[in-house]
Computed example of a mutant assay.
Amino acid sequence: MKRLVTLLVFCLLISISDVAAAGGTITGTVHLPNTERGMHIGRGEGGAAMMWDMSAPKNRKRSERAEIWLIERGINFTALPYAAVQKWYQQGTIPANQPIYHAVVNEQGQFTFQDVPAAEYYVMILDPNGKEGNQNLADKMTRDELTKKLPHADEFELFMVGMRSCLVQKVSLRNGQTINIRPSVF
């Protein structure tokens, strides 16, 4: 009987650790303006149009790469010390034990967050080129929602975003799920 109880407890612990370790994956591709595949909006007196940079040399790659921040929507920012928030904003150092993740896109503009715990997240994309981003109303409302939650939002805008455009989208990730983000056009 004692062996049976020990075996059941062992199996229970293994199953709990498997559930706790389960997570999901968030991937995506960001095409920046003035790259081979990047497009931008041209505005003039006659209206607006979508344009690609046809004068760019073939297979040209930009050395600048977009930064992607993944921030859990339910994070308790008020529990973070001011010094930790400053280090995050100014140096990119993620506060310890916080559901905040960071990636930089590769040469093809792709990014991946693997084994992320199931939760609702803000996906924040920072364009390194400093161009004004083209945001739809939902993206703007999501950015405003995130900014209201961030401590010292003025410092966030100054140090983290700066002159770059910042696109924010919401995602809801379940265990074992893979989400492919299709960001709005920069």
Score class of each variant (00 low, 15 high):
176 G>N: 02
54 M>K: 09
26 I>E: 08
178 T>V: 14
92 G>Q: 14
96 A>K: 15
132 E>F: 05
115 D>H: 05
140 K>V: 03
175 N>M: 01
32 L>T: 04
147 T>Y: 13
50 M>C: 05
58 K>T: 05
180 N>C: 06
133 G>I: 00
74 G>V: 04
40 H>V: 04
99 P>Q: 13
7 L>M: 14
150 L>T: 02
6 T>A: 10
109 G>D: 06
135 Q>Y: 11
29 T>K: 15
90 Q>P: 04
48 A>I: 05
87 K>L: 03
52 W>P: 02
63 S>I: 01
140 K>C: 00
92 G>M: 05
81 P>E: 15
1 M>N: 12
60 R>C: 00
93 T>F: 08
171 V>I: 15
9 V>A: 09
148 K>W: 00
6 T>G: 04
61 K>W: 00
59 N>L: 05
15 S>N: 07
39 M>R: 13
29 T>W: 11
43 R>Y: 08
118 A>M: 11
96 A>I: 11
161 V>D: 06
152 H>I: 01
25 T>S: 15
34 N>Q: 10
100 I>P: 05
58 K>V: 03
106 N>R: 13
79 A>L: 05
1 M>D: 15
124 M>A: 12
96 A>G: 02
88 W>I: 04
122 Y>V: 10
156 F>S: 03
24 G>A: 08
69 W>T: 00
75 I>A: 09
145 E>P: 00
121 Y>M: 07
172 S>H: 04
8 L>E: 05
82 Y>N: 12
101 Y>Q: 03
85 V>Y: 12
136 N>I: 02
28 G>P: 04
166 C>W: 06
8 L>A: 13
